[in-house]
């Protein structure tokens, strides 16, 4: 087991954003997290990434308890993440952005630079190596974030809506990139709204609603689950869909 999150809860004041969420990820999987807005996906994601500590529960990564570990420690242990709203280092060049990531495993400038250039080539940003990050549009920024975190050589990659806001063509390119990353042996957990992405990429999905996980399984099965349809579309739809089902 690469990642095991058990009974993870998080409250903000009296508001319970996440209640008793469970997630087990085996090495080499691609797991999707879906759910309507405000379902607790991002809170769960941030707990797993070490950005906010859970109020209760236990998260174990590769045999190490990381429940209360800092975000920096998560990165060191091999959990990488991207941000929903890209958080690239605007004034720095693309190469320098990626080098910040590469310095985690390569302390010498020359080694970090070489590793960063490899990742830049792999993610298809080579033509823009020296350009400042602020010159990129949204798709470029999302790609740069992926390049930057790949440079930290993660075992587990957490993608937070890395494909949102892209055009259909860009989505296809991004899906291909995620596949190539997976083929390198990186385990992936992806939060995504776009069903097409989840259905093509994920082997297993976990559905969140109102702070709890309401279903999990193969994507095709989950999208037909009455509880999931109800969460997304309301009760009446679930009944209608149920009535038409063979």
């Amino acid at each position: 087991m690469l990642l095991s999150a058990r009974e993870v809860s998080r409250s903000f004041g009296s508001f319970v954003a996440l209640a008793n969420a469970n997630l087990d990820v085996e090495e080499g999987e691609i797991v999707g997290l879906i759910g309507p807005n405000g379902a607790g996906k991002s809170t769960f994601f941030n707990c797993v990434a070490g950005d906010i500590p859970p109020s209760a529960g236990r998260i174990v990564f590769s045999g190490t308890d990381v429940t209360r570990a800092s975000a920096a420690t998560h990165a060191r242990l091999g959990i990488g993440r991207t941000f929903q709203v890209p958080a690239t280092f605007e004034e720095m060049s693309i190469l320098d952005n990626v080098m910040v990531g590469a310095f985690l495993r390569h302390h010498q400038r020359g080694d970090a630079r070489a590793a960063a250039l490899d990742v830049i080539e792999f993610t298809g940003l080579k033509a823009l190596t020296e350009a400042p990050a602020k010159s990129l549009g949204t798709p470029g920024r999302k790609r740069l974030e992926i390049a930057r975190v790949l440079a930290t050589e993660p075992k587990l990659l957490l993608l937070d809506e890395a494909l949102a806001g892209l055009t259909p063509v860009e989505i296809q390119e991004a899906i291909a990139l995620v596949r190539r990353i997976h083929a390198r042996g990186v385990t992936i957990v992806i939060v995504e709204h776009i069903m097409e992405v989840i259905l093509t990429l994920a082997e297993r999905v976990l559905v969140f609603n109102q702070g709890a996980t309401i279903a999990s399984g193969r994507p095709r099965d989950v999208v037909n689950d009455p509880a999931v349809i109800e969460a997304y579309l309301g009760r009446r739809h679930a009944r209608d869909r149920g009535a038409h089902a063979p």
Binding site: A71, G80, A87, V100
Partner: peptide
């Protein structure tokens, strides 16, 4: 420079 540009992303990269 990463810290100046954004502490949260810097942390996420192990800084």
């Amino acid at each position: 420079r990463a810290i100046r540009a954004g502490e949260r992303p810097a942390r996420s990269l192990g800084v």
